[in-house]
Amino acid sequence: MPFTLATWNINSVRLRAGLVQKLLAEEAPDVLCLQECKSPVEKIPFELFAEMGYGYWAARGQKGYNGVAILSRMPLQDAGHIDWCGKGDARHVAATLENGVTIHNCYIPAGGDVADREVNEKFGHKLDTLTEMRDHFGANQPEKSILVGDLNIAPREDDVWSHKQLLKVVSHTPIEVEHLGNAQHAGGWVDVTRADTPEGQLYSWWSYRARDWDAADKGRRLDHIWASGDIAGAAHGSRVLRAARGWEQPSDHAPVFASFDL
């Protein structure tokens, strides 16, 4: 059953429900994973997406912060969630498709502005979340699984506009890259996007602070699609929909896509 999956930090699903509809209408992924929904589950406008054929969903939400949702036009079964660090944050939800593929939708903490856990609790929270992810998937080796989301780390030198200038900037510091790499390795995850696009600059996020984000092009690849080793070879067609960053009242993230022939 071939299918296409997209992941997108929407930065408020209620505020940008129209952009979600635009993406579903124009790109028609079979599954869309959203992060930073910033809404209790009961207030997410699922009825708007159901009218477009996306009548299946799994979500975790909270008022004003975090929040993850999986929209699908294929039947799925809610497969629970992991409460990273026991904070009650809505940062993970899983769902299983009829073909047996389990999708993990994750929103890793951004980590604040200072890359030092001794003075910045948010940075410590980020590192601890990644450690728990490492331990969880190390102990529960994923099979027939896909992990997507805003992981808030650009791991490679060509995942940022300037490796040298961003080495001390949260999202690209060596300790974050190490923690993300450990989590990926422990679970045997394959970075599908970079398997398809092994070389060259590639971004999925551009700051709101840039007066002309497109011309400045100071981006980072913060949004990822990973697959367990047993199905990674079925992935293809990875791309970032850069144009969505230029839509009216956009998220600062662009959707990332991959297709799977399973």
Rank of each mutant, 00 (worst) to 15 (best):
H125K: 13
I82D: 03
N152D: 06
N105D: 14
D78E: 05
R73M: 02
N120H: 04
L151F: 04
Q141M: 08
H92W: 03
Q77M: 15
T102C: 07
A95E: 01
T129G: 03
Q141N: 02
A90F: 00
L76W: 02
T129V: 14
S145A: 15
D116Y: 09
Q77A: 15
D89G: 11
D150F: 00
K87N: 14
G111C: 07
L76K: 00
V101T: 10
I108M: 12
E132L: 01
C106A: 12
T131M: 13
H125P: 09
N105I: 11
R134V: 03
E132K: 00
A90M: 04
G111N: 02
D83G: 07
A139N: 11
R134C: 08
L151V: 01
G138K: 00
V114H: 08
A94C: 09
N140D: 08
K87L: 10
R117H: 10
F137C: 07
L130H: 13
E132V: 00
G100K: 12
H81D: 15
M133G: 07
D83W: 03
L127H: 01
E118Q: 12
M74I: 14
E121I: 09
S145G: 09
A79N: 11
Q141K: 10
S72V: 07
T102M: 09
D150Q: 02
Q77P: 06
A110C: 15
K144H: 15
E118I: 05
D135R: 06
I103K: 08
K122M: 03
L76N: 00
L151D: 00
E121F: 10
C106Q: 13
G100Y: 11
T96S: 12
N99H: 05
K122H: 03
D128C: 10
T102G: 03
S145E: 05
F137S: 08
A110M: 12
Q141T: 09
G80D: 03
I103A: 02
D113F: 11
R134S: 10
G124F: 05
W84S: 01
G80N: 05
C85E: 11
G112W: 00
D113A: 15
A115E: 04
E98L: 12
V114E: 02
G138T: 00
H104S: 02
P109D: 09
H92M: 01
K122C: 07
A95C: 08
A94K: 06
D150I: 00
G86Y: 06
R134G: 05
N140P: 05
A110N: 15
